[in-house]
Amino acid sequence: MSPFLDAYFARIHYTSTPAVNLETLRQLHLLHNSAIPFENIDVVLPREIELSDEAIFNKLVLARRGGYCFEQNGLFERALRETGFKVRSLLGRVVLANPPQMPPRTHRLLLVELQGEQWIADVGFGGQTLTAPVRLEPHIEQSTPHGLYRLEQAGPDWVLQFRHHDRWQSMYQFEMGAQYQADFVMGNFHSAHWPQSHFRHHLLMCRHLPDGGKLTLTNYHFTHWRDGHVVQEEILPDARALYDAMQQRFGLGVDDPQYGFSVQQLERVMAGF
C-alpha cells in the first residue's frame, strides 16, 4: 500500500485487507464517518480552506481535524481511487431548507462504479450525511446504519432524499456531468465567503457512531442522537467546555502548528454567536 493509504487507514481505524468490492466500500464509508468529524471551524476562525490533495491530507489525516464536503469527499475520493475503485466527484445543489430559488452547486459527492453498477457515496453532508453508499437507482428505499434514503430523478438530474419521521425530505439535487478542480474551488469559496452562508454564522460539527448514533454540535448546543431520538442534550457553558468537547467527544485534533487552534482563539470567535 501507499504511505497515503497507510496513514488514512490508521486515521479511520481500518485494519482489514481492502478489496475492490461493495463490502470494502461500505466499511470504509462508515469508518470514515465515525472517525473524521464534519466541521466548519476554519470558516468561522476564519481561515482559507485549501483543496489540494496535500492540504486535505495534512489537515484531516495528519492533524486529525475534520472538514466539510469539499475536503471530506476529496479525501474519500483519493482513498477509494488509490484502493482501486473507479470514482469521480459530482456537484450538487443543497435544497434541504426548501430554498425559493435553485441554489448554486456547493456540495461535493462521489460516484463509484463497481461491478457494472453505480453507487453514490458521500461522507460530507453533516448530520444527515450518508453512512453507506446507495445504489444509483430511483424510487427504492435504501437502508444505511443511520437511516433510510432514496434517490429520485428530476429530468436529467437526481435528488437524494432521507426519511424524516413519516415523510421524505430532499437533501440535494445533483447532475452527472464531469466536474473539475476549478468547480470545487468555486463552490468552496462561495460556501466559505458568501455573507449569507450558514457556515459563516454557526459552528457546526457532527460525528456518526458505529452503533447508529451520532453526535452533533451547533454552536454551544451538544446533542447525542440514536435512532432519531435525543439520548443526551446539553448547552455547553463556555468556550473551554466547547474546546474540551471537540477533543473528547468528537476526537478532534487541536494541537497541530498549522491546523490547530487554541481555546482563546475559539473564545474570541464564539463571542459573535
Rank of each mutant, 00 (worst) to 15 (best):
L5S: 01
Y8G: 03
H13Q: 11
Y14W: 11
T15Y: 07
T15H: 15
S16F: 08
V20A: 09
N21R: 03
E23S: 11
Q27P: 01
L28N: 02
I36Q: 03
F38T: 03
N40Y: 10
I41Y: 02
D42M: 11
L45E: 13
P46D: 05
P46S: 10
E48R: 12
E48S: 15
I49S: 07
L51A: 12
L51E: 13
S52W: 13
D53I: 04
D53F: 08
F57P: 02
L62N: 10
L62D: 03
R65K: 12
G67K: 09
G67D: 11
F70T: 10
F70V: 13
E71N: 06
G74H: 08
F76I: 01
E77K: 15
R78C: 07
R78V: 05
E82P: 10
E82R: 01
T83W: 06
F85M: 08
K86Y: 02
S89G: 15
S89K: 15
L90Q: 06
L90P: 10
M102Y: 01
T106P: 04
T106A: 03
T106H: 04
R108L: 11
G116A: 11
A121E: 00
A121D: 02
D122M: 00
F125N: 04
F125R: 01
G127Y: 05
G127R: 01
T131E: 00
E137G: 01
E137M: 09
H139T: 03
P145L: 08
P145Y: 09
G147Q: 04
G147S: 08
L148C: 06
P156R: 07
V159A: 09
R163S: 12
D166M: 07
R167Q: 15
W168H: 06
Q169R: 13
G177K: 07
A182T: 14
D183M: 05
F189C: 07
S191R: 00
A192D: 15
A192Q: 14
Q196L: 13
R200A: 03
H201K: 12
L203Y: 15
L204W: 04
M205T: 02
R207A: 12
H208S: 06
H208E: 00
L209Q: 11
L209M: 11
P210F: 02
P210I: 02
L215V: 01
L217Q: 00
Y220A: 12
F222D: 05
H224T: 01
D227L: 11
G228K: 10
Q232S: 10
Q232L: 12
Q232N: 11
E233R: 11
I235N: 12
A239R: 07
A245E: 05
A245W: 00
Q247G: 09
Q248F: 03
F250Q: 04
G253H: 06
D256P: 13
P257K: 01
Q258M: 08
Y259C: 08
Y259H: 15
G260H: 07
S262P: 12
Q264R: 05
R268T: 08
